[in-house]
Simulated scan of single mutants.
Amino acid sequence: MDVQGIDQLAQRLASLVPPGLAQARQDLQANFKDVLAQGLRRLDLVTREEFDVQSQVLARTRDRLEQLEKRLADLEISAAHRGQ
């Protein structure tokens, strides 16, 4: 979640404070923003870019594994035919 997203969420939370508490609303919005940012940092999240890169690595690894499984199956068939 980016800074803009945190700001928007903090503003939405602060908007729930009754209008008569204008100063409290501003203080709460700042506190909401800090708490949200700290909470997200503790979650050890990855960026979308990092996720996409790892997804590509996984897809390449899966393709390579499938190739190797096929090659192994072919070798097993060859070995079985030679053994007969």
Results as ranks from 00 to 15, higher is better:
Met1Ile: 12
Asp2Thr: 12
Asp2His: 03
Asp2Val: 05
Val3Tyr: 07
Val3Gln: 14
Gln4Asp: 14
Gln4Cys: 08
Ile6Phe: 07
Ile6His: 00
Asp7Gln: 15
Asp7Cys: 03
Gln8Cys: 03
Gln8Trp: 08
Ala10Glu: 00
Ala10Ser: 10
Gln11Val: 03
Arg12Gly: 07
Leu13Trp: 01
Leu13Gln: 09
Ala14Asn: 00
Pro18Val: 08
Pro18Ala: 12
Pro19His: 08
Pro19Glu: 03
Gly20Leu: 11
Gly20Thr: 09
Leu21His: 08
Ala22Ser: 06
Ala22Gly: 01
Gln23Tyr: 08
Gln23Asp: 03
Gln23Met: 09
Gln23Phe: 06
Gln23Gly: 05
Ala24Gln: 11
Ala24Glu: 11
Ala24Asn: 03
Ala24Phe: 06
Asp27Lys: 08
Asp27Gly: 10
Asp27Gln: 13
Gln29Arg: 12
Ala30His: 02
Ala30Phe: 02
Ala30Ile: 06
Ala30Val: 03
Asn31Phe: 03
Asn31Val: 02
Asn31Asp: 07
Lys33Leu: 11
Lys33Cys: 01
Asp34Thr: 10
Asp34Tyr: 04
Val35Glu: 02
Val35Cys: 04
Val35Asn: 04
Val35Ser: 05
Leu36Ala: 08
Ala37Asn: 09
Ala37Phe: 00
Ala37Thr: 00
Gln38Gly: 09
Gln38Arg: 15
Gln38Phe: 05
Gly39Phe: 02
Gly39Asp: 10
Leu40Gly: 00
Leu40Glu: 00
Leu40Trp: 05
Arg42Met: 10
Arg42Asp: 11
Leu43Pro: 07
Leu43Trp: 08
Leu43Glu: 15
Leu43Cys: 12
Asp44Asn: 14
Asp44Met: 06
Asp44Leu: 03
Asp44Thr: 04
Leu45Phe: 10
Val46Tyr: 06
Thr47Gln: 11
Thr47Gly: 01
Arg48Ala: 04
Arg48Asn: 09
Arg48Tyr: 08
Arg48Leu: 13
Arg48Gly: 02
Glu50Val: 14
Phe51Glu: 09
Phe51Cys: 07
Phe51Arg: 11
Asp52Ala: 12
Val53His: 02
Val53Asp: 01
Gln56Asp: 09
Gln56Arg: 13
Val57Gln: 15
Arg60Gln: 13
Arg60Leu: 04
Arg60Cys: 06
Thr61Ser: 14
Thr61Leu: 13
Thr61Val: 09
Arg62Asn: 10
Asp63Val: 09
Asp63His: 02
Arg64Val: 03
Arg64Ile: 02
Leu65Gly: 00
Leu65Glu: 12
Glu66Gly: 04
Glu66Ser: 12
Gln67Asp: 14
Leu68Glu: 15
Leu68Tyr: 04
Glu69His: 06
Lys70Tyr: 06
Arg71Gln: 15
Leu72Met: 14
Ala73Trp: 04
Asp74Val: 05
Leu75Trp: 03
Leu75Arg: 13
Leu75His: 06
Glu76Thr: 01
Glu76Leu: 10
Ile77Lys: 15
Ser78Thr: 07
Ser78Lys: 12
Ser78Gln: 13
Ser78Val: 11
Ala79Tyr: 05
Ala79Thr: 02
Ala80Glu: 13
Ala80Leu: 02
His81Ile: 12
His81Val: 13
His81Phe: 10
Arg82Lys: 10
Gly83Asp: 14
Gly83Gln: 14
Gly83Ile: 06
Gln84Glu: 11
Gln84Ala: 06
